[in-house]
């Protein structure tokens, strides 16, 4: 089991997973999002190859209305 902090909230996952699998579980597959892992950008092209580790801190963002 691994624990991740996603957008400030703690989440547990039964098995190790990569970024593409996480995005699928969150329901964001095909959506325009950007993801930061422990302060560094994870490029979209590498989602399937970046393996997440216990304790990783992730930020998942979108564009919203703003001034």
């Amino acid at each position: 089991m691994i624990n991740l902090t996603i957008n400030g909230a703690s989440r547990s996952f039964p098995a190790a997973l990569n970024v593409a699998e996480l995005i699928e579980q969150l329901g964001y597959t095909g959506k325009r999002i950007a993801l930061e892992r422990n302060g560094a950008i994870v490029p979209r092209s590498t989602y399937a190859t970046v393996q997440l580790a216990d304790g990783d801190k992730l930020e998942v963002v979108v564009a919203v209305g703003g001034g």
């Binding site: 996603i6 957008n7 969150l26 964001y28 963002v61 979108v62 564009a63």
Partner: peptide, 20 residues
Amino acid sequence: VTVAIRRTNLGQNANEPNLL
């Protein structure tokens, strides 16, 4: 046009209308 960058709302319907 300016836009803001914000965290997604985890657990909320990912198919809601969006700015884009």
